[in-house]
Write a protein that binds this DNA or RNA. Structure first.
Lengths: 337, 337
DNA sequence: AGCGTCCGCGAAAAGCATTTCGGTAGTTTC
DNA sequence: GAAACTACCGAAATGCTTTTCGCGGACGCT
């Protein structure tokens, strides 16, 4: 059943080409001390045997493995998958592969996974946090470069890349302003999340710059549809003149839209709503489709991979790099006309 | 900055313990020809140096690497992540690690990823399809065991594990029947999906066994909230006496619930609704929380890992193994009283 | 005391690619 | 024609662990 095609070794190639193993290696790796005719002979032999160098043997000598670990705590894969795809892109398929491990939000498990990865001699580590707030730096003596993605490290000396929440908040507010809204409310999530405050700060700055004040203080709650519904009701009761709503997440926005519609408001004609995350299954299925802020997670993964690559190459970066968000305009802020 | 703690080698351990490398290896691997006192001495030395055997050197000899590839085409990670977590569980963290690759639904890319994984000498492959229908067997000469998860292989000689959609459909119908519903409608997704037909068949069987017929033929459409809304409206118009609704996915169920509510129906008092997938972000945030069918994806991953492990060990399984679904009862089918 | 046994340990090879260094043949220079 | 090069190629070491095989010593038995 299983084909026993044992992979060809360098020795097989050398024998077929009628040269020594050393020469074959040099020919395949583009070393200089090989005659062109010999090189071609070796190349053809390698092709014929479909030879691929054994990465273990190679790694044993060089001390590197061509693998990196991606350690996530994001159970649902909401953030990890796009980041991982970006990283895959950046590493260029083939030369570097990614071990994905899930720590499931458990510090013990995280340590365990780190050890497992280190014992596999990964060349580097990307740590993806479960929430966008700073997280503790990885303890223990890691002897490979580490890049923190999405959730930056608390240690400013570490290398981190994250989404610019302030800019994202500003983007949302500016968009509502640009559609002519002036009675704008803000509903966001858990007060314990720094990202909630950052996004809020960005939005307030944009409003202030335009000479507009929010209809009332921002409402904090949780990152859920239920909270979005409740908050929208409260807000509309207090300020029936509301014509724009900035939500801290797409989940909140979905809830708020449901509540607004049930209270007889048309979206976007009466009230424009904008979310944050661009969680497509939520945003695209909203009525109307939800305008939102995209955090560019794939780009974030690419950048993280790039930084890790540089660090492996010997030129590490320090501090937190913030990547700008992107505005996704859909029906919830602009009439479909 | 970076600690240059070079990993200890077996030679270091042996020197510290005052024995030969060979003895140290045997002591650590539980071989018999070692005196107990010597073994303890070696163990202590290994502990002191926090020695971990270099997996490359070990793999070089054994021909195995202690890694498996998990190849997915599931962009959103909706299915892959739970499956991967299950696989991680089963492999027992540490001894076997998982390379996750995303083919992004592209056959070319898939071949490419397979080659990359094979060149890394993975011990086995788990292929997770994007949809639950059978998929083509992996082409090319793979010389390692392959297990297909979620989407079975078209080749009955391959080893596959998938969710039992017929049983899941039956479970949904039986649950509605058990709450006393007798005017039951069925809305499902894309007609091109075998899973849609399987779930439907299971539901019809259960209804038939209870002497109940669905209010009308099942409605096929797409796996979206929009279709759920539209279908629910059509169905309710034709059959105002509807008191139970089986949906082919949680997205459809969410849409249907919105439409039912807007048409003045109370859930679950007037109409009970049940979904399929247990996609928590959708199901838990519904009003009321959505009863649904859970496909036990994590268990599916565990099983896939187990089958792969057996195949690596030399006793492969053949054919498709179907894992039962699980009923999740929430507020959309039972009064909260 | 001498022979046979068994236990415990170590030397060495195997697994594969890379690299250094030494060597051979051919070519140039005086 | 001999010395000095150059250009190519091959032997061997390197990295680390596992395993086989053999050796030495200790113990028991006669």
């Amino acid at each position: 059943m299983v084909e026993k095609t044992k992979p060809a070794t360098l020795g097989d190639v050398a024998r077929l080409a009628g040269v020594s193993i050393a020469t074959a290696s040099k020919a395949l790796n583009g070393r200089a001390q090989v005659r062109e005719s010999t090189r071609e002979k070796v190349m053809r032999s390698a092709e014929a045997l479909s030879f691929v160098p054994n990465p273990l043997a190679r790694g044993l000598l060089s001390g590197t493995t061509g693998t990196v670990g991606l350690l996530t705590s994001d159970l649902e894969g909401r953030f990890s998958i796009p980041i991982m795809m970006g990283a895959e892109d950046a590493f260029g398929a083939g030369s570097t592969s990614v071990f994905l491990c899930d720590a499931r939000g458990d510090a013990i498990r995280e340590q365990h996974q780190v050890r497992a990865l280190l014992s596999r001699h990964v060349d580097g580590l990307i740590v993806v946090g479960a929430r966008p707030d700073p997280r503790p730096s990885l303890a223990g003596d890691i002897n490979v470069p580490v890049v923190y993605a999405y959730a930056p490290s608390e240690d400013p000396d570490d290398s981190s890349v994250t989404s610019d929440n302030v800019q994202g908040g500003r983007l949302a507010a500016e968009h509502l302003l640009s559609t002519g809204r002036r009675s704008i409310g803000i509903v966001t999530g858990d007060r314990g999340y720094g990202a909630a405050h950052d996004r809020l700060a960005g939005a307030l700055t944009a409003l202030h710059d335009a000479g507009v004040e929010p209809v009332q203080d921002a409402l904090f709650g949780s990152w859920s549809e239920g909270w979005g519904r409740g908050a929208a009701r409260v807000l509309l009761e207090a300020r029936p003149d509301l014509d724009g709503l900035i939500c801290g997440s797409d989940q909140i926005a979905r809830g708020a839209m449901d509540a607004l519609r049930e209270l007889g408001r048309e979206i976007p004609d009466d009230v424009a709503v904008i979310g944050h995350d661009n969680w497509e299954v939520l945003a695209m299925n909203a009525r109307p489709p939800l305008s939102t802020i995209d955090m560019n997670l794939q780009e974030l993964g690419r950048r993280a991979a790039g930084m890790l690559f540089d660090a492996i190459g010997g030129s590490p970066t320090h501090g937190v790099e913030k990547l700008p968000c992107r505005l996704m305009v859909r029906g919830s802020t602009t009439p479909t006309s």
